[in-house]
Amino acid sequence: MNEGEGVRRLVLGLVSVTSVTVAWESAARYGLVDPLFLPPPTEVLATAVDLLRHGYRGSPLWVHVGLSLGRALVAFVAAVIVGIPLGVMIGISPIFAGLIDPFVQFLRPLPKLALIPLVILWFGIGEFSKVFLIFLSASLSIVVGAAAAVANVRRQQIRAGKVLGAHGFALFRHVMLPQMAPELFVAVRLSLGIGWTTLIAAEMIAADAGLGWMAVNASAYLRTDIVMLGIVLLGLTGYVLDLAIVGLQRWVTPWAGRS
């Protein structure tokens, strides 16, 4: 994407977001929808200011955001550390793949909500259970992506590496890994989305703070404005995380898609 295209996309994005926000505000203000079902943006903003000042159920707003982000980030880092080597081993060794793959394929499509009772039973209702749930869904998708990345390494590049003297681990480190890197980033990026989605499920485990918990808790009291605020913040934070990954990808693998 060149610079002009980037600017155009930014402008288009701003135009569309502004239009939707204005339409949403007008709909609520002119009585087209009941503010209980759809509180206008100005009210959500006022709620945000209020929660920043006075907090929600004992925790300031930034603690909710920070806590959710912290849980997700710890889970992601763990998922990358565990998932990439596991996926690469599955991709390289057919025997290892045969042994491990059934479990990966069984767990991956399983809705993580179904695991909540078990996770509580095993690990209790503390932070570990929440992080574990996010970790589980994120790492499974990284494993699958990393295994696919190994399969896509080009034979010609392997041959070029071998004939230049790279064998065994050196071949992996200097030829296969760099070639897989762009795809590994894609896998991490997808898993970020999946893991972030699991956050609400994770925070349903007897949490008393966090964005997901805040939204679910507020709905019980018909505080639609807080529910809305929680949703907007969840979406925005997820968006920022995604941008960060894309930025990191451009920086680490500038050759991606150009060879």
């Binding site: 010609q156 590049q157 041959r159 070029a160 071998k162 004939v163 230049l164 003297g165 790279a166 064998h167 200097h174 030829v175 760099p178 070639q179 890197a181 693998t253 050759w255 150009r258 060879s259």
Partner: peptide, 27 residues
């Protein structure tokens, strides 16, 4: 086994895109 005592030049160059020209040459 393959090694640098037998140089190979492929039809499609097969350079390593993550390395600069000098790093490819000195691989």
């Amino acid at each position: 086994r393959p090694g640098p005592d037998r140089g190979v030049v492929f039809q499609d160059a097969s350079l390593f895109p993550w390395l600069s020209v000098i790093d490819n040459v000195t691989f």
